[in-house]
Write a protein that binds this DNA or RNA. Structure first.
Length: 578
RNA sequence: GGUCCCGUGGUGUAGCCUGGCCAAACACGCGGCCCUGUCAAGGCCGAGAACGCCGGUUCGAAUCCGGUCGGGACCGCCA
């Protein structure tokens, strides 16, 4: 067998005419005409047609692995297939050998699969056989290679950081790994190499990057996987402007090298507050307009009690014009109501609609004008707590854009959301960090740190493209005292600060350069590039929403011996309802 | 932690709202035969599901109800 050096099925072209070749691949399809049979033979590079005459006929079925020896020939005039890259030629076989037989696969290995995703995940090795999936894997490789080239050219060096780290109670839930040699003690798998990369700056590395796996034990969403891959970057003596320039250049290079597209730089910037107001999200998709407007002040004295109630309770009223939306059916609107309620809204109003008679002429005019609604437009209204109203309007905005096909396909809309806020309020009303606790506060806002922490801006930024947050980072704190102060504002006592972050604080006493960086999620980047809303489409072996690997059957129980060795006792979950 | 959607032959769907005419239809795939130029090949013939699982309502359930399992979407969560 000499398959490694053999030409690829998908690479044969007219220029190969006359060459004797040996091909290895999978039978993608067979068309048996009696005296002559056509086999489409597939490998990662594509598919080529093989002509088998009766004298060399061998019994094959779809997905058999075969070896074909034959001659590359131009197809007879008129029988070329312009839909295939190899369509000008065919291989006339004088030998067909079955290397490996195959059962009928549980779903057809074609690009237009409509098989259930769970089935595809169970037989992922078959799913990846589909040309589209193979192309996605290759595209991902191209992206990562472009990143490596770019980072290397800018004198960044890739440094690997450990997988077994110290757990932190902050941030997302850790995956933990029991220590055999230290009974009762555990490692944590990295949520990100954050502290290590900062320590590399203290070490004087200056420019670090890594394509790092990060693991977060959180509930999944359409755009989340448990094991994310991120480009992790940190640099010394930099400002946010340096990071922006670096990353703008990086995306420009990736888009050019991989997609052949020139993207304009620098990217526009939008501060977080404006983003939440106008787009209802911190990651706006600018491929469509649809701006949200605030009409709280107009409705302070309104007779519409549903709106008034929210305003009196300190909430807001936001509105959004749906272009040409007056033609929406009651059913369409009901679906939007369902969406809004599903996101926790108390309700959804629209104009013109049942609410009209409770609103004054002046209020109606003001709402229409604030939302920029034209004569044929419908205006959606949500009244709620500010955060909830933003979330709901953001969802509605996206849904409207999808339904009314307002998203301009083929556009790449990059922007920086910057600055962001240093602190946020969690659902219990407690103060928590917006980005992470190592983020530097905005210098001019330093005096607000103690009295009005929520007004403190952070030197933090997200790079958003087509509604996907593809990277985010910050300029870090490099001063021990300030870092300790931020921890304290976050409600940590001295003991905890030193137990969790003592190494970092100590390091800051030995000469620390100002530094900052960014992390870019490769999975989400790939989603954006492939324009898919399903992150599993860009990951080779993804897990389900409930963290299971349907192919491997993981997670799975381990033997009592293994548990004993690890000093672990399993406590079965309490049965629900008992 | 919560809400919602889905689960019918190998695959995808129809049927389910308005129980009986459904041991269930259609397409693809699969098997056999025919066919020397197709490329979603074609023609003819054929096999294949008691409708995720458990329980209930009913004279009768794929169809109604409850639970459960699996998948997905969303809110929370994701420094």
């Amino acid at each position: 067998m000499s398959g490694y050096s053999a030409p690829h099925c998908g690479s044969l072209r007219a220029s190969d005419e006359g060459h004797r070749v040996e091909l290895y691949g999978w039978v993608a399809r067979r068309r048996d005409h009696g005296g002559v049979t056509f086999l489409d033979v597939r490998d990662r590079w594509g598919t080529v047609q093989v002509v088998v005459r009766s004298q060399t006929e061998t019994f094959v079925r779809n997905e058999y692995v075969i070896r074909v020896a034959g001659k590359v020939a131009r197809r007879p005039a008129g029988s070329e297939n312009p839909k295939m890259a190899t369509g000008e030629v065919e291989v006339v076989a004088d030998e067909v050998e079955v290397i490996s037989e195959a059962k009928t696969p549980p779903f057809e290995i074609v690009d237009e699969v409509d098989a259930d995703e769970a089935l595809r995940l169970k037989y992922r090795y078959l799913d990846l056989r589909r040309p589209k999936m193979a192309q996605t894997l290759e595209l991902r490789h191209r992206v990562v290679q472009a990143i490596h080239r770019y980072m290397d050219a800018h004198e960044f060096i890739e440094v690997e950081t450990p997988m077994l780290l110290k757990g932190t109670p902050e941030g997302s839930r850790d995956f933990i790994v029991p220590s055999r040699l230290h009974p009762g003690e555990f490692f944590a798998l990295p949520q990100s190499p954050q502290q290590l990369k900062q320590l590399l700056m203290v070490a004087g590395i200056g420019r670090y990057y890594q394509i790092a796996r990060c693991l977060r034990d959180e509930d999944l969403r359409a755009d989340r996987v448990v094991e994310i891959t991120q480009l992790d970057v940190e640099m010394s003596f930099c400002t946010e402007e340096d990071v922006f320039a670096l990353i703008e250049g990086l995306w420009a290079k990736v888009w050019k090298d991989v997609l052949g597209i020139e993207i304009p730089t620098p990217f526009p910037r939008l501060d977080m507050q404006e983003s939440l107001l106008k787009y209802g999200t911190d990651k706006p998709d600018l491929r469509y307009e649809l701006e949200i407007a605030d009409v709280t002040d107009t409705l302070r004295e309104t007779g519409a009690t549903v709106l008034r109630g929210a305003v009196d309770a300190g909430g807001v009223v936001r509105c959004l014009a749906v272009p040409g939306g007056k033609d929406m059916s009651r059913r369409d609107l009901d679906e939007l109501v369902l969406l809004a309620k599903g996101a926790g809204a108390k309700g959804l109003a629209w104009i013109p609609g049942p609410l009209d008679r409770h609103l004054s002429e002046g209020e109606l005019t003001a709402i229409r004008s604030a939302s920029g609604a034209g004569a044929d437009d419908l205006v959606l209204l949500v009244a709620d707590r500010r955060r909830k109203a933003e979330t709901v309007m953001g969802l509605l905005r996206r849904e409207i854009a999808r339904r009314r096909k307002l998203i301009r396909q083929g556009e790449w809309k990059f922007l920086w959301v910057y600055p962001m806020y240093m602190f946020e309020e969690d659902d219990l009303g407690n103060l928590t960090y917006g980005h992470h606790p190592f983020t530097s506060p905005w210098p001019e806002d330093m005096h607000l740190l103690t009295e009005r922490p929520y007004d403190v801006r952070a030197r933090a930024y997200d790079c958003v493209m087509n509604g996907v947050e593809i990277s985010g980072g910050s300029v870090r704190i490099h001063d021990r005292e300030l870092q300790e102060r931020v921890f304290e504002i976050l409600g940590m006592d001295r003991e905890r600060i030193h137990g969790q972050f003592g190494h970092l604080l100590d390091a800051f006493e030995y000469g620390v350069p100002p530094h900052g960086g960014i992390a870019a999620g490769i999975d989400r980047l790939m989603m954006a590039i492939k324009d898919t809303e399903n992150i599993r489409e860009v990951v080779a072996f993804p897990k389900t929403q409930s963290h299971q690997d349907l192919m491997l059957g993981a997670p799975s129980p381990v033997s009592p011996e293994q548990l004993e060795e690890l000093h672990i006792q399993v406590v079965p979950p309490r049965k629900t309802g008992s």
